[in-house]
């Protein structure tokens, strides 16, 4: 039974990862990252349940806090980029290309 939680987490994580890889809209990419974070939270919570200690839940809580801070910053960055480029696509400017 517990393995099923993990498998669910794996599926969610993988879907999030694939979304991160194939989408070009920065917002959706960000959502995919959130999806991956949630998948990891699920692992933490389920393992907390398996081991009978609350530390996993605390860790999940911290993950949520950090995710919230990350969302704030990330969305600010997206808004800033949008303001400069009128687009949220990550392909418009290949800034990493030398």
């Amino acid at each position: 039974m517990t393995d099923l939680y993990l498998v669910l987490a794996v599926i969610l994580f993988s879907v999030g990862l694939v979304g991160f890889l194939i989408r070009r809209n920065a917002l959706i990419i960000f959502m995919s990252i959130e999806l991956m974070l949630n998948a990891s939270n699920l692992v933490l919570v389920s393992m907390s349940h398996v081991h009978g200690v609350l530390d996993g839940q605390v860790a999940a809580f911290f993950v949520m806090v950090v995710a919230a801070a990350e969302v704030v910053i990330g969305l600010s960055i997206i808004v800033t980029i949008f303001r400069a480029r009128r687009s949220t696509s990550v392909d418009n400017e290949i800034l990493l290309k030398g």
Binding site: M1, D3, L6, V7, V10, I11, S14, L21, G52
Partner: peptide, 28 residues
């Protein structure tokens, strides 16, 4: 390629976590 890699990751992690937990859940 990304979808294939994602499926590969699912298989890999499922294989890995399939052996992760052996004991029944203790409960909180």
């Amino acid at each position: 390629a990304a979808c294939l890699a994602g499926v590969g990751l699912v298989v890999l992690l499922a294989l890995a976590v399939g052996q992760a937990v052996t004991a029944p859940a203790v409960g909180l």
